[in-house]
Computed example of a mutant assay.
Amino acid sequence: MSGPAREVAAVRSAVVASLADLPPDALVLVACSGGPDSLALAAGVAFLAGRTTTTWRAQAVVVDHGLQDGSAQVADEAAQACRGLGLDAVVVRVAVDGHGEAPARAARYAALERAADDLGAAAVLLGHTLDDQAETVLLGLARGSGARTLAGMPPTRGRFRRPLLGLRRTDTLAACAAQHLAPWHDPTNDGTHADASLRSRVRSDALPTLERVLGPGVAEALARTAAQLRDDADLLDALAADLLNAASVDGGLDVDVLAAAAPALRTRALRTAVIAAGSPAGALLRVHVLAVDALVTDWHGQGAVALPGGVAARRSCGRLALGPAPAPREAPVRAVDQEE
C-alpha cells in the first residue's frame, strides 16, 4: 500500500516537529482562511489529531475580516471544510480599524489571541510558507528595514507557530490537490486585482522577475537570509536588553552608560525603550531613533524629541527620560475691555 503524496507527508512532518514540545492533552488551534496554505495545514493537523499516538487535541478558528463582499460566506465555507476534515471549527467576526494590511493583521492576531484565551489553547498554528517569508524579507529590503524586520517571521512567537516556513506554496497547493480539497483563492492575492496589496504584487511580479533574472532559488535564498539575521537579531536584542538594564536609573536612563555602548547596541536599546514608553513600533522610524540618539551622543542643549504615539524624549541632568509629550500650550487670552 502506497503512502501519502510527498507534499502531504511533508506538511504532516512539519506539524509533528512544530508541536513536539507540547504537554499531553494540550489544545492546538489552526487558523484557517480556507486558502491553500491554511487548508493544507488544517488537513495535516486533523490527520495527526486523529491518530491514537497523538497526545494533543485540535480545533480550527476562521477569522472573518469583513473586508470583501461575500466574506461571511467564505468564512463559513472554510469552517465547514475544517469540520469535514474532522476539526471542530468556530468563525470569529472582527471589525478592522483602518485600511490596508497592517490593521487587518492586527485585528486577526487579536482575534486569534482571544480565541486561544477563551478555549485555553497552548498553540495557534499559522499557515505561512517559505514564499511568505521571502516576500516579507523582500518588502523589508525595499523599505530599508533593519535586521529584525529582515529576519522575517519566526517559527515560534508566544503561542503562535508557523510549521510550514520550510515548505513552498506549490507544496501546499499539491497537498490540497492530493487530498481532493478545494481551497479558496483570494482574488486580491492576484497582483493584477484592483485591490491587490503590495505583498500581492511582490508575489505575482517582483519575485518571478527576480527568479527569471537571477535564476531559480531566490525565494529559498531570501528565507536563508532571514534565518541567519534572526540569530543575529536575537543576540543583539539580548545585549540591548542588558544595556538598558545597566543604564536604568531613577528618572530615566544614564546617558554616560548609553554613550559608552557601541552604536548598534545603543540605537537598538533606545528603540526598545521608546516602544516600551508607548510609541507604536510600526510608526517608529530610524529617523526618530537617531534623533533620540543625538540627545545622547550630540548633546548641545536641544529640546525634547517628539515621537510617534504622543511620546517624547528629553535629556536633563545626565538622564534621558521617555514619557508622554507635554500638551501644547494654549495661546494666552487677551482681556478686552467691555463697553459700559
Rank of each mutant, 00 (worst) to 15 (best):
A75V: 06
A104S: 06
A238Q: 07
L19M: 10
R266E: 09
L39W: 09
V311M: 15
A9F: 14
V249S: 13
A233P: 04
V296K: 03
H65G: 00
E113T: 15
S33Y: 00
L119S: 12
R319Y: 05
A5N: 14
E113V: 07
A121I: 11
P23G: 02
P36C: 10
R169G: 15
G34E: 04
A142R: 11
D190P: 06
R169H: 15
A142N: 03
D69Q: 02
L214R: 05
D242W: 06
A116I: 04
L239D: 15
A241H: 03
A102G: 12
L41M: 04
V16R: 13
V94K: 05
E7R: 14
A111W: 01
L164W: 02
V96S: 06
T297D: 00
A20Y: 05
D298T: 06
D254I: 10
G35L: 02
T172L: 12
A331D: 00
A89K: 11
R93Y: 01
L126V: 04
H288I: 13
A107E: 07
G152E: 01
D117W: 00
A335D: 12
H300E: 07
A331E: 13
V289W: 02
L258R: 14
V91I: 12
Q73C: 03
S71N: 11
L270V: 08
T55R: 12
A104E: 02
T136Q: 00
V63T: 07
A9C: 08
S279H: 09
A49Q: 09
G120F: 14
S38G: 12
C32M: 09
D186I: 03
A177Y: 06
D337V: 15
G100S: 04
V333A: 12
A9S: 15
L130T: 07
D131C: 01
L270Y: 07
D118A: 08
Q73D: 15
D21T: 10
L239C: 13
A10E: 12
A182H: 15
T54Q: 08
G301T: 15
